[in-house]
Every structure is written in structure tokens, then in C-alpha cells.
Design a protein around this nucleic acid. Structure first.
Length: 480
RNA sequence: GGCCCGUUCGUCUAUCGGUUAGGACAUCUGGUUUUCAACCAGGAAAGAGGGGUUCAACUCCCCUACGGGCUACCA
């Protein structure tokens, strides 16, 4: 029986194993890692990793003018922050130029591409005229079927089909049909013989054995044009999945005026990577009613069929909510490391050694009350600050003359009490009652004395954490 | 201009012809509370508009509106 089952499992898995999933993220290095790009990378990562496949990274740096090494570094950093590890080395598309050109020459030799001697000025003039006349601006090169060639600069264009239709079988968008008379004979090789992006992607995706192309839907139309190259070369077309772009809260394309657009800005803002992954995954993708999930669950559940077709908007409130949940369940040591990285990413001074050990020890009482790292750190002020504590404005209100007097009177009670939660609670409650005041009022003063803040963990937690001597010292500081 | 894609509560979404259109965040009311966070109970809140098809449409088709994309010797 067990054998029969394992055989069934093996048989079902075999086709999948022999055709393992390969995805890639292919950003152009012209700036930081955009949050939309980060989500695209995340989807590719989830899809490949969830299926034991490979996730590759290719930098599309064929535009020498705009590509910079700094941008590549920023993209790498952003991915590292989000924990999106890729297989193999970073691949430079520019490095493959010779191979891309080779394919273009192959097509030329096969008569599936041709040399076009029309100059850019001529083409531009044609387009302008067509626009004025209200006719199609699709350029039809007179050189497509020419036999005699002048001795002049030329570009290599592909002979795109003119009849029939091209159907993009897209896992997200469904079948998208484009009439072939809408396709132009796109340029493969520029007049300086360098390959163009449209050629490079196809060749690279084929050579890298990419099985699933998951990318922004701004490439949806390009897919039809790219298919003419696949078809001309007789290559298998990958599974396409064109995902909608992310929009700002106002529904417009996400741009700088919406605030943070770079993935790393979110790190500097203090969002934990796990929460970011969860939120970004859920944005435009769903698995029933599941909102909060672990990486393991996302890996198991993520599928192309769950991706929506309409653009989603960023909602910082929900991001915070999800992040708060992830901070609450995070492993203390890992959370500590992430907070330290956050400090560096946001240009804040690093922890001193005592602060570092203090935070780590207090994480259990801190992490359940914060949605972001700045919030957590704010509530950790009783650990980070050292005597004498300088109360902030809101806290100072709890330290008026009367309150200070009460704190002075409290001191002797704390000197003798057994330093455990139950005893402390009993003493403080009795004391408050004896003073005919509410415990809440007393707690406010204690909070101000111990942390200098109005929002802190429980006063008992802080007292236990600080210990008798430090607690009394701080109360004394505040009372006098 | 041409072509392509999209449109369910404020937001993210479920629904895959028959539901009182469900959940989450946000919001409002009440409760709890030691501040913050959290928690508990409850409320308000949606099928862009117009035509079809069908016994029945949020779901299928068409038109319009709105949003987005592509239309480069950029990627």
C-alpha cells in the first residue's frame, strides 16, 4: 500500500520535476528597487521557491546611458532586505550582447529578418505625417523585401507576420488577442549593431530556460512582439503572467508624490521584512480570506490563479496592521538583528552594548505593542535612556508637585517590598487606595519617572525589568 | 489617433449564473483596560452607467464613461 502510494506520488511528480520551474526578476538598473518591482520579484520568488524551482536575477543594463552600478547595488540591497535570495550569479544582460547579435544574424541568414536602411529622420517624418493625417503610425519599411542593398548604415528588423492574429496565453490576463497588422517590424539590431532590449529578453529568457515570465503588465503588448521572435526561432514560449502595477492611494500610478516608492525607504521607515512580504503578497493576490500568513504558508499557497487583474492601491494602515502582527510573533533574536539593521538603514545611532542586551531581554514585553520599529523603540525608551530621565512634554504633565510628593511617599514602600509582580501590584494598589487616588494616576507618574514617556509597557514590567535599585533611583530623580 | 488591459464597501479582496454579496484593514458606537498596543460586542459601508442573453446576472456579450498600458535604433 505504501509503495503504491509512493509510486503514485512519484508518477505525478515526475513531469514536474523534469520540467522544474524557473523564474526570473529582470529590473533595469536606473534607480532604486521600486516597491512595484519588489512585488514582482516577490511573486517570482514565491512561485519558484514554492515549487522547488529556481529564481534568477538578470539586470537589464543594455541601455548604457541610464544604467548605473549604484542602481544595481541598490536593487541587490533591496532584495536582500526582503529576503529574496536568487540562484546563481547576477546576470548582466549587456554581457550577452554577442549572443543576442548572433541570434539576429541567424534570423537574417534565415531570411526572417532584414536590413533596413531607412534613417531615423525618414521614419520620424513618416510618423509625423501619419499622425497629422490620422492614419496608422506603424512604420512599414520599404526594405523588407529589397534585394539590392546600398552601402550605408542599417538596422536589422524582424519580419513580423502581417496576417492573422497573435494570441498571448496569459495566466493572469487570460487569452489576449492582438491582430498581426498591429505589429511592426521591430528593430533587433541598432545601426551600431548593438542588440535591442526586445531581442535580448527573448534570447536571455530562452537561454536561461525560464519557464514562467511573471512581470508587470506594462509588458503585455510587448509579449506579442516578443512572440514573433520566439516563433521565428522556433523556440517554446514561456508561460506568461502579466501582473497589474501598484497604484498610489489616489489610484494614480505610484510616483514620488505618494511618498515612499523605493523598497528600502520602507526599511528605513521601520517596517519588518516579513510584514512587508505578507502585505505585498496579499496586494493583488488572494488565497480565500487569508490575510495574515507566514512565509511558509505563502510559499505553499502562492499561485498564478490567485492574482487579480486590476491594479491595487497601497494602504499604509493595513501595512502597519500586518507588520504589527509579524513583529508580535517574531523570534526575539531575529527581531533584534532586524532592528539593528533598521537603525543603520535610517541613519540612527547604533545601540550601545548595554542597550543591545537590554532591548533583547525586553523584546517579549515590547513586541506585542508596536506596529513598526520606531514605535517599538519609542516604547523601549525606559531601556534606551539613562539617568537622569528627561520626561517628554506629555509625560511631564504627570510629574506636577502633587505627583512628585506622592512618588516620594511611595519610595519607602518599594524599598521593602518583595520584587515580584504580585507583591508590587499589591503594594501599588494599596498605596494608591491609601492616597485616595486612582491607580491609573499613580501609574502615569511612575511611567513618566521610569521612562519619561506617556506610552510605555506596563509599569510592572518596567519595574521588574529595571530592578529595585534603578527603579528607586529613577523615582527619586523625578521626585526631587 | 490606433491597439491592448482593467472597473465589487474608503482600501485589499471572496464570489467562478441562483448568496440576506462574505472576510480583512480603516471608520463609528459600546465594553474592557494602567498609558500605548491589544482585546470583546455591535453598526454603517460595494457590484461605474446603459443596453442585451437567460427562468435567473456582480458573474456571459455589446456600448459608454473613467483609469492604466503599449504604440522608440528606452527598458
Amino acid at each position: 500500500m505504501a509503495n503504491a502510494i509512493s509510486l503514485m506520488v512519484t508518477e505525478r511528480l515526475m513531469p514536474l520535476m523534469s520540467q522544474a520551474v524557473v523564474t526570473r526578476f529582470a529590473p533595469s538598473p536606473t534607480g532604486f528597487l521600486h516597491i512595484g518591482g519588489a512585488r514582482t520579484a516577490l511573486f517570482n520568488w514565491l512561485f519558484a521557491r514554492g515549487r522547488g524551482g529556481k529564481f534568477l536575477l538578470r539586470i537589464e543594463d543594455t541601455d548604457r546611458e541610464r544604467s548605473t552600478p549604484e542602481a544595481t547595488a541598490a536593487i541587490l540591497q533591496g532584495m536582500a532586505w526582503l529576503g529574496l535570495d536568487f540562484d546563481g550569479d547576477v546576470i548582466s544582460q549587456f554581457d550577452g550582447a554577442a549572443r543576442h547579435a548572433e541570434v539576429a544574424h541567424d534570423l537574417l541568414a534565415q531570411g526572417k529578418a532584414y536590413k533596413c536602411f531607412s534613417t531615423q529622420d525618414e521614419i520620424q517624418a513618416f510618423r509625423d505625417a501619419a499622425k497629422d493625417a490620422g492614419t496608422s503610425t506603424l512604420f512599414r519599411s520599404p526594405w523588407r523585401d529589397a534585394t539590392d542593398h546600398p552601402d550605408a548604415p542599417f538596422v536589422v528588423r524582424i519580419k513580423a507576420p502581417r496576417d492573422g492574429v497573435t494570441v498571448i496565453r496569459d495566466s493572469v490576463q487570460g487569452d489576449v488577442t492582438i491582430r498581426n497588422d498591429q505589429l511592426d517590424d521591430m528593430v533587433l539590431l541598432r545601426s551600431d549593431a548593438t542588440p535591442v532590449y526586445m531581442l535580448a529578453v527573448v534570447v536571455d529568457d530562452h537561454d536561461m530556460a525560464v519557464t514562467h515570465v511573471i512581470r508587470g503588465d506594462d509588458h503585455l503588448n510587448n509579449a506579442a512582439r516578443q512572440m514573433t521572435i520566439y516563433n521565428a526561432m522556433g523556440w517554446d514560449v514561456p508561460v506568461w503572467a502579466h501582473i497589474p502595477l501598484i497604484h498610489g492611494p489616489d489610484g494614480k500610478k505610484l510616483s514620488k508624490r505618494h511618498g515612499a516608492t523605493g523598497a528600502q525607504e520602507y526599511q528605513a521607515l521601520g517596517y519588518p521584512a516579513a510584514g512587508m512580504r505578507n502585505y505585498l503578497t496579499r496586494l493583488g493576490w488572494s488565497h480565500g480570506d487569508d490575510e495574515f500568513f507566514t512565509d511558509a504558508q505563502a510559499l505553499q499557497w502562492f499561485d498564478l490563479t490567485g492574482i487579480g487583474k486590476s491594479p491595487a492601491r497601497l494602504d499604509f494602515k493595513k501595512l502597519e496592521n500586518i507588520c504589527g502582527q509579524h513583529i508580535a510573533v517574531a523570534d526575539d533574536a531575529a527581531l533584534q538583528r532586524e532592528i539593528i539593521a533598521f537603525l543603520a538603514a535610517s541613519d540612527q545611532p547604533a545601540f550601545t552594548k548595554p542597550q543591545e542586551t537590554g532591548i533583547l531581554a525586553a523584546l517579549p514585553i515590547l513586541k506585542e505593542r508596536a506596529k513598526t520599529f520606531p514605535e517599538l523603540l519609542d516604547k523601549a525608551e525606559f531601556i534606551l535612556a539613562s539617568r537622569p530621565i528627561q520626561p517628554e512634554e506629555k509625560a511631564a504633565k504627570h510629574l506636577d508637585t502633587v505627583s512628585r510628593g506622592i512618588l516620594s511617599e511611595l519610595t519607602p514602600h518599594l524599598q521593602t517590598v518583595s520584587w515580584v509582580r504580585d507583591s508590587l501590584e499589591a503594594v501599588l494598589n494599596d498605596f494608591a487606595e491609601g492616597k485616595n487616588t486612582k491607580f491609573g494616576k499613580l501609574a502615569g507618574s511612575l511611567r513618566a519617572a521610569l521612562a519619561g514617556r506617556a506610552a510605555t509597557p506596563s509599569v510592572f514590567d518596567m519595574m521588574l525589568f529595571l530592578g529595585r535599585d534603578e527603579t528607586l533611583a529613577r523615582i527619586n530623580d523625578a521626585a526631587t
